[in-house]
Design a protein around this nucleic acid. Sequence first.
DNA 1: TTGAAAGCGCTAACAG
DNA 2: CTGTTAGCGCTTTCAA
Lengths: 344, 344
Amino acid sequence: MSRSGDRPSANVTIVDVASEAGVSYATVSRVINDDAHVKAETRERVRQVMERLGYVVNRQARSLAGGRSHVVGVLVPDLGTGYIGEIMRGIDDELDLARYDMMLYTTHRREAKESSYVASLTRGMADGLLIVLPRNPATFMQTLRQRNFPYVLIDHQGTNEQDHAVGATNWQGAYNATEYLIKLGHRRIGFITGSMDLGCARDRLAGYQAALRTHHFPVDPKLVYEGDFHQPEGYAGGNTLLSLNNPPTAIFVSNDVMAMGAMDAARSRGSRIPDDISILGFDDIPQAQNVRPALTTVRQPLEKMGRVATQMLLDLLKDPQKDVSRVELPTELIVRDSCQAPLS
Amino acid sequence: MSRSGDRPSANVTIVDVASEAGVSYATVSRVINDDAHVKAETRERVRQVMERLGYVVNRQARSLAGGRSHVVGVLVPDLGTGYIGEIMRGIDDELDLARYDMMLYTTHRREAKESSYVASLTRGMADGLLIVLPRNPATFMQTLRQRNFPYVLIDHQGTNEQDHAVGATNWQGAYNATEYLIKLGHRRIGFITGSMDLGCARDRLAGYQAALRTHHFPVDPKLVYEGDFHQPEGYAGGNTLLSLNNPPTAIFVSNDVMAMGAMDAARSRGSRIPDDISILGFDDIPQAQNVRPALTTVRQPLEKMGRVATQMLLDLLKDPQKDVSRVELPTELIVRDSCQAPLS
DNA sequence: TTGAAAGCGCTAACAG
DNA sequence: CTGTTAGCGCTTTCAA
């Protein structure tokens, strides 16, 4: 029965549940937090009352009182790209399973903001932090470490050895992909890089070069176009490479988004894919299999990376003393329709 | 060098600031909240101490005590699509400007979850809610209204007249686009729909049909393929339409993602765009201008929708009695390279 | 213009 | 196994 006329008695607290169930509100708290020291029968009764009254825990109060906020902060550069979207899906699912909420911050490359986000987050807002900043880690990392605040890095390169982190085998993936192209019979293989200030971009380039050298191919700098991971640069890179006097018969592109740009470039010049030019990407974003021809690419297990990082963080939350773990998830060559042996 | 297993003494509170500045902590609270009743001099002194000590407000405590949490909840179906990404960018920027934080929930179409999210959100976690659920609004709307909790709907159709909402002129956009195709000289114009359970999809179809009728063209049901807003259905739709005995010379597709699928379908059949077949999309996601040929499309001001909705919510937070406002932002035909007059 | 004090809803000792 | 109680950091009356 609604006693006061204002809002429907929506704010059911632990106290309401307690009095309704005829126990102290500490007991209710125990039930909520799965404390073992509650008689099964009492637990059940409390549960039912909670259900009936529609009780929902107030997370502010909980975290204020020193408990867990059950919120995880997530820091990403932005959301536009399918790349981040995939990682987020993994994070999101895993968080959901553990009944955690997510506080999302996009930095849009405004470094200045990051510190204040982190300050806010570490002040009780969140229990831990997931960081997807494929850029060199910023100053706030210092704060995090000082405060001994739990965090896991995703897809970071060149980070501190003592950070928990999950990444992918960029070098190996690029190596394998290049080798695949070589075995297909390609002799001149172009390469479009990502932003070279990112470790993953450098690793991919290095993998490409290593494969070339292993097979005693010349490493022709003309065949390498410096891109930035965005589609227009893929288009420009494709055009540049294809305009060479002695153009490549295959192009390995540092990510799928640029690969699609390169495909467009090829088509606009009347080159057929894969007949005239083979194109190979990196990431395996969802669109890669929907494009025609479907893109052969190096799968980076993006969703899994998000998933694993989240699990690592959750473990860390349970046991803060946990040893530092740095995981490298394997990449995998996904052969589809955009590559074939050169015609000639 | 962790001293205690717990956290380092980095937690500067309002009390620390107060004692350091030689005032009561109520005064500090006033300064924080821009209360007018503080002597300018005192205010300045407190500000400096806050700065020096690196004070950051604890949002849990604040909202527990009845103040604002300065958090806005955002409910979206998922993040993978460029569509949501654009809206999010607008929300994010605007929230950032107002120094609000964002709590993000993706529902992945798991309706069951939504209610519990909303429950949690309305229990003090957030001050207001932004909802991007292009599906028929769920049961939790009831809760929201009952609790008189501030929220704004984004891109909802067919919602309650009494909800604050921002959308786009879907019908008009589709009408104009179809008319553009007609004026180009097309006589048979195909259409690929979105998920027909969504209001915006229905509006776009209706706009297309209306334009046809206005110009006294037959509305041939064979020319309409029912899609679902995802790329594979765009591909399938393109194929189906192009396989007709009397195929269309232009296809209007209900969103850009499917339009790209349709483009692939056309190409895989050896049709050139726009020479053999014109393709027109809807949304103007960032990729639309990067694809080759660049996609002619109806721009839905996605980012702006996010921005406007956020402003509306923030206004609502300031003045909960504010009149209901329902905004329809204009769509705009963006002419690029994927349409031309039919050859014959 | 400022201070004192009462909670907000909950967790976590500490008793029983 | 369960109850009692002391805060967590802050906003907000109410007094001064």
